[in-house]
Amino acid sequence: MTTPDFSDPENLTARERQALECLIKRLADDEFVLAERYTEWQVRAPTLESDLALANNAQDELGHARLWYDVLGDHGYTERELVYERDPAEFRHSTIVELPFEEGDWADAVLRSYLCDVAEELRLEALEASSSPKIANRVAKIQQEESYHREHAQNWLERLAEGEEGHERLQAALDRLFPHALTIFEPCAPPHGENANKTNETSDDEPRATGSDVEADIVDFGLRTATLEELGEEWLAIVVPYLESLDLDVPESGQTGDGEFEFEVTQEMLPDERGRDGIHTDAWVDLYDDFTHTYRELGRSEPTKIMETPE
């Protein structure tokens, strides 16, 4: 197959368009929702210094979300359809980013940040040579900021893991978060209306998300140069040894054989809600209601733009 020309959004086939949109929603929704959660720590972090640092990360992620959503501007989508008036069931973020923080659970904040940041680094690498110039052009700027995030998370993890209470809290957070982290590498379901009858499939015999064609297209069209399985394996090969070096037990690590990380996610390893398939936890609905509150209260029909083009 010849690589489609994504520099010309007018001349894409329906499948090409869907692959691009699906990829962007994976990226942008993850960043947007994670940023929403990070902002919960503003004016609540352990110290003024950590408050400032987490606020920085939240703004970085929000900026990235804005950059990714903007890619779909070529396809006639605006922030209204993509965020403020999108049906919450049409968001495609992984469930790890939507879970609320328990008050004071800083261990969750730094662990979640680490798990997401590693995944983010890997998928950005796989986008460096994307066939979509708009995607490829945005990667370098985002990478620059993300490397700092991971370093920050690791500094904290290492610090907390040394203390008894910190270690206990990290282990509890890991047990709770790990299954949701695996959903980062789950396939996306297409929007409702297209194969809508299948998206709520809960049988164990076949994958619930029927987007695997879309996911294959994303790679076949050269939009991303690694498959979800490859990204997941790489991710496990990084996070499992690292977390074990902190004396943490990784639940269901997917490790098979002698140290090779075969990425074999079984149904049992995954939570009921996987996000990518449009099935979310109740916390997502509450979060959605909260962030759209003003927009609805004031009867707005267009989210305010301050910057003409995102930087």
């Binding site: 902002t39 929000l62 909260d290 962030f291 927009y295 004031l298 989210p303 733009k305």
Partner: peptide, 14 residues
């Protein structure tokens, strides 16, 4: 920050 009516406002408010 959360209840800002757009991403731009949210960024500025954060």
């Amino acid at each position: 920050i959360r209840q800002s009516p757009s991403i731009d406002r949210k960024l500025a408010f954060s």
